[in-house]
């Protein structure tokens, strides 16, 4: 089991032990008196990657670019333990919730932008130590490749691949292989693992730019 980043810990909250970070509660998750709040791996793919012991290379405090921030469930935890965090989300509805999460944090920057068009936010986002990607569109590998320019040489891509976004009928393993192959054009794959039992038909990928 690899080390958790600083700022993430296994804590006993509400009689259950699980991942937790310290920060203002964002979506009604259980908290304890010391200010820790539960990070439920069933609601977060990055949480699932950490909970299942994947070596994310995260140490805490790094700058991060989060693609597919949605309502901010996961990104709220990332902003808790990471440094400046840029959160990109394309759909206006979830960004309303993301704004609430951002308001309560000092270094979380919400961007209503399309992750497939990095040129529309390259004037705002600086080079980062980690890209976290959880977008539910077809062409997930292409999104990662297009955003590679934001990643520092020794940075990490932490990606959740959703099989059903690529092709609902194909066997997930076949989809994962295809996505990973495309991804290899710009990244060296360090680790891949299915996110069961937390998320069905999802693959977690850790990679670094080549």
């Amino acid at each position: 089991m690899s080390d958790l980043p600083a700022g993430v810990a296994r804590r006993d909250i509400d009689g259950e032990t699980g991942l937790a970070t310290q920060g203002p509660p964002a979506y009604g998750e259980p908290t304890d008196e010391a200010g820790w709040r539960r990070w439920n791996p069933r609601r977060s793919k990055l949480g699932a990657m950490l909970a299942s012991g994947m070596d994310t290379g995260l140490t805490g405090g790094e700058t991060a670019l989060y693609l597919g921030a949605a309502a901010g469930t996961t990104v709220s935890h990332v902003a808790d333990f990471a440094g400046p965090t840029y959160a990109v989300e394309f759909a206006p509805r979830p960004v309303r919730d993301l704004l609430d999460v951002a308001e309560e944090r000092d270094r979380l920057f919400p961007l209503l932008k399309d992750a497939r068009k990095p040129e529309t936010y390259a004037h705002v986002v600086e080079p980062v130590d980690a890209i976290v990607q959880d977008v539910a569109t077809r062409g997930q590998a292409e999104v990662a490749l297009a955003n590679r320019e934001f990643l520092r040489e020794d940075g990490r891509l932490l990606m959740a691949v959703k099989a059903r976004s690529e092709d609902v009928t194909a066997d997930p393993e076949v989809v994962f292989d295809a996505v990973v192959e495309t991804l290899s054009e710009g990244y060296e794959i360090l680790e891949r693992a299915r996110l069961e039992p937390y998320h069905a038909d999802h693959l977690g990928v850790v990679a670094r730019p080549r």
Partner: peptide, 21 residues
Amino acid sequence: YYDCLREATIDAARAAVEERE
């Protein structure tokens, strides 16, 4: 800088959401 960026991104996202929604 980050304080300015925070204000600007939150303002921008809020305006964009209101406009698009």
